[in-house]
Design a protein around this nucleic acid. Sequence first.
DNA 1: GTCCAAAGTGACACTAGTGTCATGAATTAA
DNA 2: TTAATTCATGACACTAGTGTCACTTTGGAC
Lengths: 191, 191
Amino acid sequence: MARERKFTDDELFKATKLLLIKDGYDSFTFSKLASVMEVSRGSIYKYYENKDNLISEFLVYEMNRFNLSFSGLDKSGDFQTQFSLVIDFIFKHSEIHQILEIINQIPKKSSHRDQSNQTKLNTYYIDMYKQFQGLIEQGKKEQVIKSHLSDAIILGMIFQTIAIPNHFGIPNDEWIASIREILSEGMFQKV
Amino acid sequence: MARERKFTDDELFKATKLLLIKDGYDSFTFSKLASVMEVSRGSIYKYYENKDNLISEFLVYEMNRFNLSFSGLDKSGDFQTQFSLVIDFIFKHSEIHQILEIINQIPKKSSHRDQSNQTKLNTYYIDMYKQFQGLIEQGKKEQVIKSHLSDAIILGMIFQTIAIPNHFGIPNDEWIASIREILSEGMFQKV
DNA sequence: GTCCAAAGTGACACTAGTGTCATGAATTAA
DNA sequence: TTAATTCATGACACTAGTGTCACTTTGGAC
């Protein structure tokens, strides 16, 4: 006994992602979102208190999806195989870089509900970190990765390369191959 | 025969840089700037039409300073020496990364004056690119840099590493040394 | 067909930023 | 001291977004 909903949470999150990635956190507004969804602004307030609340729910949803998808990767091969798999995976999900940036942009002063989301996000963040750390440790154990490099810097390097602007339109395959090569062997000739 | 000014352009740009780097382009307002400068908002309009105009003037000023400072680096040593010098230089001027990001964020629909600034910025951008490209070419000529890697990707890698978030507070020296090592030799052991 | 709960809407009051301008304040040449 | 000139200010009207709420619409249960 109810009226039919004009949009689902999934649709809302899809539009949210679109706008967040196009315009960034600051320029995201309920007005724009409502316009994309073709509903009135007021109706979104039925489900989310405000922008921060919506975005923090969205981020939880998105991080959860990313982690699930990441942990679904084939873990059977040796390190080299996995490393390639993971690089490809990250470049296929390159929005994750912006998502992580937005997580660090959310203002702290927020409602109880949002604080609980912050906690969840922290957990997801750590989960993600641990998954990568597992890979890095395997690499160090197999004597492939230099052991004196800290996990944090290796992870940072890998994640940051997603966001290198490809101003000159180099083809995707060459782009990813070059980055993988530099990350693993460097840009210098072997002596 | 005039009243004394309460602030110079240099002071204004200094405050602008501060706010732009702290809050980003979207959150930058004349109100905040006036408050930092301890003058009225109205007085800033005496010198700059609006936010976009001020920021584009600021960026021209900043890029010019960066390029001058960069071209002042010692060019006498061999490639390896210069490479280290440049990496150190970039990390010392790491705000350049945000500056370049902001350049790409300025809306296009702007006044004649701003369009002339856009042209200037493009020139500065190309100047900067050429300076780095000179170094990369030297590296390739000296057989240090792998010749099959495109200049664009090498430059992109180097610039992007500035912005890796150092969440775990690794000491600056170790941080830069590790990044230089990964960029040049990679994160994999030599076989 | 009637009831009614959930869903949706648009108008309202509020906040924060923008750009302008009449007015007042400071400086100095005459 | 006065006149001329530049600077600085705060008030004004305007725009865009926020959050709320009384009211309308929808559609299944009875």
